[in-house]
Amino acid sequence: MISVKELRRTFGPIVAVDDISFDVAKGEVLGFLGPNGAGKTTAMRMLACFLAPDSGTATVCGHDIIAEPVAVRESIGYLAENAPAYGEMTVAGFLNFICDARRIAGKAKKEALDRIVPMCAVGSVYHQTIDTLSKGYRRRVGLAQALIHDPDVLILDEPTDGLDPNQKHEVRLLINKMAKDKCIIVSTHILEEVEEVCTRTIIIASGKILVDSTPALLKEKYHCSLDEVFRKVTRTKKSA
């Protein structure tokens, strides 16, 4: 469902993403790992058509990110880093706006809201302005807007950042529940999360893919925990 071909993006002299290629199929949950500044967010932003690549391309659900950005955006749900939203709006107003922009109207809108509000547990803050919400609730609202149109592809940039352990557990359960019908890319720093939800993992550093494997295979190959695998892989790259 996602096919990335030699995607590259620079910011001045900095190469944020350096010719990365990979494919993700339906039913896969891909964990995108890497140190800060590795290029995870830039890669995800390119897949979500927020940033244009310098070279290379990708297709999402058969649509090219350069030639058909609107079709790509229609077929994905994207949760940006820090879950930005319109602070002055209420949760209800914000989700209604997302429905309007995604052409979900009338009965379909009601059904979408009835499904997503309990799913993301935002019912208790539904009429509250987003500015007054805690970090956890803001992230849940971000998840709700990403899932409201029931997309085939989900791109989640650190979906559990700032959540308490219970909320983290709930989000992981939610991802696991949706996993078999969707294609999901999750970026995270939490390695236990990768073990819990991801069927595959890519470790990226300085814009390059260092490892593309499954969490189980990585542990078997390196004979250590995923934490240590991460350190070994990314430090080897640094010292090289």
Partner: peptide
Amino acid sequence: KSGSIEILLTLPVT
């Protein structure tokens, strides 16, 4: 500044 542009421009909006 708030980053909400990332929400707006990843919706099907040109």
